[in-house]
Amino acid sequence: MPTRKTTVASKKASAKKAVARGAVKSAATKKTAPKKAAVKAAVKKAAVKKVAVKKAAAVKMPKAAVAPHIAPGRASSERILAIDIGGTGLKAAVIDGHGKMLGERVRVATPHPCTPEQMVDTLATLVNPLLTQHHPTRMSIGFPGVVRENCVLTAPNIGDEGWHGVPLASMLARRVGNLPVRMINDAEMQGFAAIEGHGLEFVLTLGTGAGTALFRDGELMPHLELAHHPVSKTRTYDEYIGAHARDQAGDKRWNKRVEKVIDVLSKLVNYDRLWIGGGNAVNLKFDLPANVAIVSNAAGIEGGAKLWHPRSMRESRQLPDANQRTGEFG
Rank of each mutant, 00 (worst) to 15 (best):
R148K: 15
V147Q: 11
G304E: 10
M61F: 12
H244S: 10
R246M: 12
M139G: 12
A193R: 13
A52I: 01
L131S: 11
G304R: 08
Y237M: 09
G218S: 02
K285D: 14
A64C: 08
Q118C: 02
R107A: 14
N178R: 04
T236E: 02
E188T: 15
A64R: 08
A56I: 09
A305S: 15
A290G: 02
R311M: 11
D84E: 10
I141F: 09
A92Y: 04
P136Q: 06
L224Q: 14
L204I: 10
V8C: 03
F192H: 15
G211P: 06
K11C: 07
T205E: 04
P180W: 11
V181Q: 04
P111C: 12
G159N: 06
A46I: 00
G218C: 01
F215P: 06
L153W: 13
A93G: 07
K233F: 05
A249Y: 10
V106L: 13
P68G: 15
A210Y: 02
A65K: 13
K256M: 14
D96L: 02
K17N: 12
L284C: 03
I83Q: 10
E259P: 02
A109P: 06
A41P: 00
A173C: 07
G303Y: 09
T208A: 01
L90Q: 11
L226P: 02
L153H: 14
V120Y: 05
G304H: 09
R174I: 02
K100W: 07
V176L: 03
L226D: 06
A28D: 09
A15L: 14
K12C: 09
V152I: 15
V181L: 02
K17W: 01
G103R: 01
A299Q: 01
V94Q: 11
K12D: 13
L206P: 01
I158R: 13
G97D: 08
I83C: 08
A46Q: 07
L307P: 02
T29R: 13
Q318K: 12
I83P: 10
H228P: 00
V51Y: 12
P144R: 04
T326W: 09
V120I: 14
N291W: 07
C151L: 11
R246V: 03
A28F: 04
K16T: 12
D247T: 14
L319R: 12
Y240W: 14
L153S: 10
I301Q: 06
M183P: 04
R148N: 09
R174Y: 08
V292E: 04
H98V: 05
S26C: 03
D96F: 03
R246W: 03
F143N: 08
I301K: 05
G300K: 03
M119H: 07
